[in-house]
């Protein structure tokens, strides 16, 4: 079996052109997806996570554009440099994308089967029958009657079924890098659990490198190996999921986890994070983007943006957390 490709995002900056000038939605993000793992990206609305996901296909929509940095994918090179036909062929074939609101990601006028054949024709698939067979297999793995689904129009399928069709279309060309943008949003709990199980299974079966974007920490905890937390267009914490969720180092991650209500225990133990996430226009020009809502705010946070510090597989960008992480660092190296 071929090995899963690695993905290295380096110093990626994406700006949106607004009446107030070009404002960064993603600023200087570094993120490495280890081959064969599922990386989750969580963050509030407007934290730049969907923009980050679109960058993996160099598909940031106007008025946005990638203004700097690179996205290296093994076997594909720097996606940011790809143009025209090269870029089109990479999309779908090398990088599968499950769309945010996948319920609406299908052409309402064509059957799923015809859209599948359009996909095959676009990527010069030599044997359409094999493609249909693969599609039916995938749909069957996801608990659907492949023949019936391929013969259906979008409006004849439920939300959960459409979501699975979206996943099938992202996987059927055997893309090794798969990006799922909010794959379970707007689905009921049972369907969510099913979709997450399918993602995990197919991921392992096919040796994929997967990126899951979500605002649902619970959903990502089910599937991911690593977790990246985004805030204000930056990755504030990144590491193995058990570490990040079990011992969050960044005050924002800590706040996020405290805000999750537990099934057991007192509901009043859940603490909402005070304040609002920044928008493109309210991002501070200098200093830490999180300081307005931060309990550990220090003088240095006003002027100096905290650089990401890596130790023990965990990366954190916080002046305050740097102190608490320091002992861990010593323990490892002494």
């Amino acid at each position: 079996m071929e090995t899963a490709p690695g993905v290295r995002i380096r110093d990626l900056t994406v700006v949106y052109n607004t009446p107030m000038g070009e404002l960064p939605a993603v600023s200087g993000v570094d993120l490495t997806l280890t081959p064969g793992t599922i990386t989750g990206v969580v963050g509030e609305s407007g934290s730049g996570k969907s923009t980050l996901a679109l960058s993996l296909l160099n598909a940031v929509q106007p008025p946005g554009r990638i203004s700097g940095g690179s996205v290296e994918i093994d076997g594909l090179g720097d996606v940011v440099r790809l143009r025209g036909e090269e870029l089109r062929q990479a999309r779908g074939r090398k990088v599968g994308y499950v769309f945010q609101a996948a319920q609406n990601s299908l052409n309402p006028l064509k059957t799923i089967g015809k859209q599948l054949l359009d996909l095959g024709r676009s990527h010069d698939v030599a044997d359409p029958r094999a493609l249909v067979r693969d599609a039916k297999d995938l749909l069957a793995r996801m608990g659907l009657d492949g023949a019936r689904v391929l013969d259906s129009h979008q409006h004849e399928l439920s939300g959960g079924m459409r979501q699975r069709v979206g996943i099938m279309l992202a996987l059927v060309l055997n893309a090794k890098v798969v990006v799922l943008d909010e794959p379970t949003t707007a689905l009921d709990m049972i369907t969510q659990a099913t979709i997450l199980r399918i993602i995990r299974e197919v991921h392992e079966e096919r040796a994929l490198t997967t990126l899951v974007i979500t605002h649902d920490v619970g959903a990502v905890a089910e599937v991911a190996d690593a977790l990246a937390v985004m805030y204000g267009g930056r990755i504030v914490e990144h590491g193995p999921i058990a570490d990040v969720l079990g011992a969050p180092a960044h005050p924002y991650t800590q706040g996020l986890i405290r805000a999750i209500p537990r099934l057991s225990g007192d509901i009043s133990q859940a603490r909402a994070l005070p304040g609002r996430p920044p928008t493109l226009g309210t991002l501070p020009a200098a200093g830490c983007v999180f300081r307005e809502r931060c309990a550990l705010r220090m003088e240095i946070c006003e002027t100096v943006e905290p650089a990401p510090v890596t130790c023990g597989g965990r990366t954190v960008a916080c002046h305050a957390a740097g102190h608490s992480l320091a002992p861990v660092k010593r323990k490892e190296y002494v």
Partner: peptide, 14 residues
């Protein structure tokens, strides 16, 4: 509409 962007992200021919 979402499905046009989705079609582009699947690399469908122009």
């Amino acid at each position: 509409d979402d499905f046009i962007l989705a079609a582009e992200l699947r690399g469908l021919k122009r």
